[in-house]
Write a protein that binds this DNA or RNA. Structure first.
Length: 874
DNA sequence: GAGATCACGC
DNA sequence: GACGTACGTGATCTCC
């Protein structure tokens, strides 16, 4: 059975362009529409598996419709140049896919599609049309269906005859009559003034067509309506005519010629590389097997190491293929320096005194990619890696934190050095990942080493150009080692304690579950929003507050609004809270207790966030509950590894707002900190113009939310959500805030201007974040970029400070030969384990080092607390 | 395996 | 006509 897919090229490109942020490659070529178009194309090819396919484009400005109506499509906004530039690239992509595309002077893409679908139907084929334009619904028949883009590009809604009947109550052929009556503002088709979709459909249900409606004007009720129809008779007929797709276009392509061909893998992968569509490279059949040919590279694979193979400086690659490097599986090691390239298996390294000595010698310089991974994995094999002076991962991240992949391969290709295959190409991906044959693995690791070695000067040069070299060598590189030590040390957890809490939670869950079933009058999966929605909003008939794209929203903020409407609601909220604790924190944490150490070893990602903060995974120890007592108890399971030691927590008080006060040099705000006031109360005083004693709890709550908004860069919308007020009211609070703190206002304006001029913003230590969308014509994207511009220097500087504090504290611990150990960092706090006899020293030392780490115009304040468990350190 | 929804921390 | 709202991680459900 033949199946023809027809794609409305301009329409889909248009949708893709607006659905995606304005992406561009290194050369500054915009690619978002091409990307969106291509993802849709890949999905269509896979899902439809068509035998024939063609993409139709509009040609030129005028078509035969302009002869009927010279105002046709006039008044339309010009296509943005960022989009029209991409249309040739889309055609190029289609060529690489070997998919036919065509356009024809005097006709629109619609007409080409109409003509080919007619021909295909005559042959008895199935036809499927992809477009964002409802006009094409008129082509729907027994053989033809239309896929309309709903949201974005890949989210589509499919229309057959029944679906059109359901939605509009008319036949496909009547779509043009509908247009004739209601018109189409986007094409400047006038229709009949005063008639919209509703009225048009009502008339058509009774009279079938525009012609019949006009012939029956006297029977139609309503004086106004009669007048309108009489007066605009001609216009209605013309509008209908304009909407009719012409299905006998003199096409040059014969239908047999648009047979689907297999695509040109080489051309396509080259194009994707050029456009930097890394994620799509993998989805091209054959691309992962067919590695591009790289220039030969010579190396030695050895089983015994000698000293002359290990020089200073060398690139050192330790391949730890599994995401979690605490399990220490190492596939192989390569060393590359000026005089040679070597590959050897882990066993060779472990048994080699020469390697151990070299690796542990801080004076032997090493360049790596992801030092922490290599360091921790080697550490598990008893080798303490030292002397790393350059980490390409960290360098790449500092140069531009937004790039989606910092792999060796991608860093190399960004520097125009195609000398290393992707890991995916060599190892496969996902479940298919496997260790390749020895020579292939060896060559791959050597290539990575070669890339790291040769790219080092280029990356350093970029860092220096950005004035980030100091940030790199004196902050982030030392920090990597500290994080590695923290991860290797791990945190002791009391397994029995976790299990005990788990049992209690289970009992609660059982009780809640049966209560909920009883209140609902039925049993269902409470964890499924899809099942919960209908029960709440249909069976129990509660008011619908919010919908998601797949159904009713049942999120906590919705449920809170319904709290006193039904007894089931508080039970649900509690159920959610308890089951989150059980699954994420009890079961999740028990799962990641390392069998060898009985501790939890998280991994801090130092190269992921856009602001410079760290993140934590497997498990995430930066989101252990604290707000609600029920969850806070989880912290009782976090204990010190040594008997009698304590957990000590030191947190910066209001660090972001202090940073803001410093950056903006705002007197009102600075006063709050210089006098050590409660900052939210102070904000309430300034915003509401009242004395301290007259600040109500509600005023303070509002002020706190506004401060929160400032720190996290939320919008008026975000603030309105958190305070449960209207957007307008939220904006008023923001305006009052800025009026109270004029220098903050000035800072906000200046930083936006700076972002527009430079294209990026920086933190106190020159961390950088690019904001290309700050000049976007799209209001939402531009606004988002502006909020980011205001927020990133604040949050990023706070991140700089605590990172610097970690380096300083670590140095102090070493200098004073203390046994206390840094365990965790949670954005504004540091967690240590401390022997009894060092408690007093540490209380003093940690707070003074943290407070002195950076000299701001306002004092930094640190609060220290400690106890036998993390819970008690409050 | 991917995407949607929900929830936790800062 | 577009359209989505601080970030990052993780669990579960659902559909393919």
């Amino acid at each position: 059975m033949s199946k023809l897919v027809l794609i409305d090229g301009n329409s889909i490109a248009y949708r893709a362009f607006f659905a995606l942020p304005l992406l561009n490659n290194q050369k500054g070529v915009y690619t978002n529409a091409v990307y969106g178009f291509t993802t849709m194309l890949l999905k269509v090819l896979e899902e439809e598996d068509p035998s024939h396919i063609l993409v139709a484009f509009d040609a030129g400005k005028t078509t035969f419709r302009h002869e009927t109506f010279d105002e046709y499509k006039s008044g339309r906004q010009k296509t943005p140049s960022e989009l029209s530039e991409q249309l040739p690239l889309i055609r190029e992509t289609l060529d690489a896919f070997q998919i036919s595309h065509t356009e024809l002077a005097n006709y629109e893409a619609d007409d080409i599609i109409g003509t080919l679908s007619k021909q295909a139907e005559a042959e008895g084929w199935d036809v499927r049309v992809y477009t964002g334009d409802k006009d094409l619904l008129q082509l729907v028949s027994d053989k033809t269906t239309v896929a309309l883009t709903k949201k974005g590009v890949t989210n589509i809604e499919s229309y057959d005859v029944a679906a059109i009947d359901e939605k509009y109550g008319i036949k496909p052929a009547q779509i043009v009559d509908m247009k004739g009556l209601m018109g189409d503002s986007s094409d400047n088709i006038p229709g009949v003034p005063g008639i919209g979709e509703k009225t048009a459909l009502k008339l058509l249900k009774e009279y079938d067509s525009v012609e019949n409606v006009l012939d029956s004007i006297e029977h139609i009720s309503g004086k106004k309506m009669k007048e309108r129809l009489t007066e605009h008779k001609k216009q209605a007929l013309m509008s209908k005519e304009l909407a009719v797709i012409y299905r006998d276009v003199p096409l040059q392509v014969a239908i047999e010629e648009i047979k689907r061909r297999s695509y040109d893998t080489k051309q396509l992968s080259e194009l994707f590389k050029e456009l930097e569509f890394q994620s799509l490279l993998g989805s091209i059949d054959g691309a992962e097997n067919e590695k591009e040919s790289l220039e030969d590279i010579s190396f030695e694979a050895v089983d015994t190491l000698s000293e002359d193979m290990l020089k200073s400086p060398s690139a050192l690659m330790v391949e730890v293929p599994h995401e979690n490097y605490h399990h220490a599986d190492i596939w192989g090691i390569s060393v590359v320096h000026e005089d040679g390239r070597y590959y050897f298996p882990l066993e060779a390294a472990v048994k080699s005194d020469a390697f151990r000595k070299w690796a542990q010698d801080a004076s032997k310089e090493k360049y790596t990619f992801d030092t922490k991974r290599a360091m921790v994995a080697l550490g598990w094999h008893g080798i303490t890696l030292k002397g790393v002076t350059h980490d390409a991962l960290i360098a790449s991240y500092l140069i531009d934190p937004s790039v989606s992949s910092h792999s060796v391969t991608d860093i190399a290709s960004r520097q125009q050095k195609n000398i290393v295959h992707s890991d995916e190409a060599v190892y496969g991906k996902g479940a298919k990942q496997k260790k390749p044959e020895d020579p292939d693995l060896a060559e791959h690791l050597v290539r990575k080493g070669e890339a790291v070695f040769t790219l080092k000067p280029r990356l350093e040069e970029e860092l220096k150009n950005n004035e980030q070299f100091q940030l790199f060598t004196e902050l982030e590189m030392p920090l990597t080692l500290i994080l590695g030590e923290m991860e290797t040390t791990g945190v002791k957890v009391d397994k029995q304690q976790l299990e005990k809490i788990g049992t209690e939670l289970d009992e609660k869950l059982d009780q809640l579950q049966s209560d909920i079933y009883e209140l609902a009058g039925t049993e269902f999966n409470i964890n499924s929003p899809k099942q919960l929605g209908p029960i709440l909003f249909e069976k129990l008939d509660l008011p619908v507050i919010k919908k998601t794209k797949t159904g009713y929203s049942t999120s906590a903020d919705v449920l809170e609004k319904l709290e006193d409407k039904h007894d089931i609601i508080p039970k649900l909220l509690l159920y959610r809270q308890v089951s989150k604790l059980k699954s994420t924190y009890i079961e999740g944490l028990l799962k990641v207790i390392h069998p060898d150490t009985n501790k939890i070893h998280t991994m801090f990602n130092q190269a992921i966030t856009q602001t410079g903060r760290l993140s934590s995974t497997e498990p995430n120890l930066q989101n252990i509950p604290i707000r609600l007592e029920e969850g806070r108890r989880i912290r009782k399971a976090f204990i010190s590894a040594e008997p009698g030691w304590s957990i000590l927590a030191a947190d910066y008080s209001q660090i972001e707002l202090r940073v803001l006060a410093h950056i903006a040099k705002d007197e009102g705000l600075m006063e709050a900190f210089q006098k050590n006031m409660d900052v939210h109360t102070k904000t309430a005083m300034d915003v509401f113009h009242v004395d301290e004693d007259d600040v109500t709890s509600n005023m303070r709550r509002t002020a706190k939310a506004v401060n929160f908004g400032i720190v996290y860069g939320i919008s008026d919308y975000g603030l309105s959500q958190s305070l449960g007020i209207t957007r307008k009211e939220a904006q008023e609070f923001i305006d009052r805030y800025l009026a109270s703190y004029p220098n903050v206002k000035e800072y906000m304006d200046d930083i936006k201007e700076e972002a527009r001029e430079k294209g990026y913003v920086t933190t106190l230590l020159n961390r950088r974040r690019y904001l290309p969308e700050i000049t976007s014509k799209n209001f939402n994207r531009r606004s988002f970029a502006e909020r980011t511009a205001m927020n990133t220097p604040i949050q990023g500087t706070a991140a700089d400070i605590i990172k610097q504090a970690m380096v300083d504290v670590n140095e102090a611990l070493n200098n004073q030969n203390l046994h206390s150990r840094l365990l965790l960092q949670v954005h504004d706090e540091l967690i240590f384990e401390v022997p009894e006899e060092e408690i007093d020293t540490m209380k003093e030392l940690v707070s003074s080092v943290m407070e002195k780490t950076m000299q701001l115009d306002v004092p930094l304040e640190v609060e220290v607390s400690y106890g036998p468990t993390w819970y008690d350190a409050k």
